[in-house]
């Protein structure tokens, strides 16, 4: 079998056995979606809006898994493998950092896409949400947001000297992003001071794009977010590959 698929299959199994991503990337988004669904029901986003509050939140909820996998799962996995000297073993095989990083990115991409499906299913089956944007456009946007958030995690995992440092940095990135970027706590209910602060977080920009794509709003309104996301992807991804440490 193809070497990428063989690695992916085994690493995915190992990750399932670890359970934490099942909880944080697959279960948690559904739980938050259900809570918001129960609280807001069919209420309009703002009086007179064509979409409901919940429909507006779909884009945000779909990023909880991206956040969990990208800034928690990825850096911890990489630094754990480095600390356990597993990377040292790979160093003396005919493989490259890019290959390994690609396998790990694929694992968390699978979690994110699964979570996207589950959240979408929950909202449309149980809470009557409709999807008004274009599926293709949304998916492309989703992948862009995913890759740029993942590249932040790759960079942290790639250059953090040990597991402890990686987990501190991951926590500093994960919890604020999860709470203040709008992924769990809706951006719209935050006071405007907090919104301004949240705008600094890359995930906030990603969620703005996803909202626009899922509600069928013009993407021109979020062009600055698109530029920011691409910049993150290229800079952090580049640093991760360039400064990757085997041991």
């Amino acid at each position: 079998m193809n070497k990428f698929l063989t690695m992916l299959k085994t690493e995915l199994k190992l990750s399932f056995r670890g359970m934490d991503m099942i909880i944080f990337a697959l279960c948690m988004p559904v739980v938050v979606a259900t809570i918001l669904g129960v609280i807001y029901g069919n209420r309009e986003a703002i009086p007179g809006a064509e979409y409901s509050f919940l429909e507006q939140s779909f884009g945000a909820l779909s990023t909880i898994a991206i956040c969990a996998g990208g800034v928690m799962g990825l850096p911890l996995l990489i630094s754990d493998y480095r600390q356990k000297k597993i990377l040292k073993r790979y160093k003396v095989t005919p493989t490259s950092p890019t290959f390994l990083l690609a396998v790990w990115v694929a694992i968390y991409a699978i979690y994110s896409l699964l979570s996207l499906l589950i959240v979408f299913g929950t909202l449309s089956l149980f809470f009557g949400c409709r999807f008004n944007g274009s599926f293709g456009g949304f998916l492309l946007t989703y992948i862009l947001v995913m890759l740029s958030i993942f590249s932040i995690g790759l960079m942290v995992g790639g250059i953090a000297p040990d597991m402890k440092t990686a987990s501190v940095i991951a926590s500093i990135l994960y919890f604020p992003m999860l709470i203040f970027s709008g992924a769990t706590l809706p951006y719209e209910v935050m006071p405007s001071v907090l919104q301004k602060a949240a705008d600094i977080l890359p995930l906030t920009q990603g969620i703005k794009m996803l909202k626009a794509a899922s509600l069928g709003l013009p993407l021109e309104s979020v062009w600055s977010s698109i530029v920011i996301m691409f910049a993150f992807m290229i800079i952090c991804g580049g640093i991760a590959v360039r400064f990757f440490k085997w041991e």
């Binding site: 356990k84 597993i86 073993r89």
Partner: peptide, 12 residues
């Protein structure tokens, strides 16, 4: 190559 410390992922 075989290393002195055994290095493999948990639960493999």
């Amino acid at each position: 190559v075989q290393f002195q410390e055994s290095n493999y992922p948990d639960k493999i």
